[in-house]
Write a protein that binds this DNA or RNA. Structure first.
Length: 110
DNA sequence: CCCCTGACGGGGC
DNA sequence: TGCCCCGCCAGGG
């Protein structure tokens, strides 16, 4: 990855590699980027990615598997709908079998 | 320029 | 196990 890319771009690069039907967390991305304590910035990056439809921001949730960012999508549960359309079960903002579908960039990427 | 907030997470107690 | 506090850093008031 190009080290000259800014934090936002790096976050997008990782997010774009999340496989269909899988999810990861803000912290996992931050950690992979070498900024484990800046998970909030990843959230900020996702917020700024609203214009960029190539970034699957709905596949990024918090470490518990909660859809904490659903309020930032259009409508009330667009984020949940997007996930469910990929086969991800969501009940009361909580992703089911979270540990099973969790995709860790630190494990899958180099 | 200072203060507060936020799609988070870890560590302390 | 759970609550609370603190670091992180970009933006807005």
């Amino acid at each position: 990855m190009n080290p000259n890319d800014n934090f936002f771009e790096k976050s997008y690069t990782i997010a774009r590699q999340i496989p269909y039907g899988r999810v990861t967390s803000y912290g996992a991305i931050a950690k992979y980027l070498g900024a484990a304590r800046s998970a909030r910035m990843v959230g900020w990056a996702m917020n700024a990615s609203h214009n960029d439809d190539t970034v699957p921001a709905h596949r990024v949730v918090n470490k518990q598997g909660l859809l904490t960012g659903k309020h930032h999508f259009d409508g009330t549960n667009l984020m949940q709908q997007l996930l469910e359309s990929e086969g991800v079960k969501v009940i009361n903002n909580q992703i089911q079998d979270f540990e099973t579908i969790f995709w860790n960039p630190s494990d899958e990427l180099e």
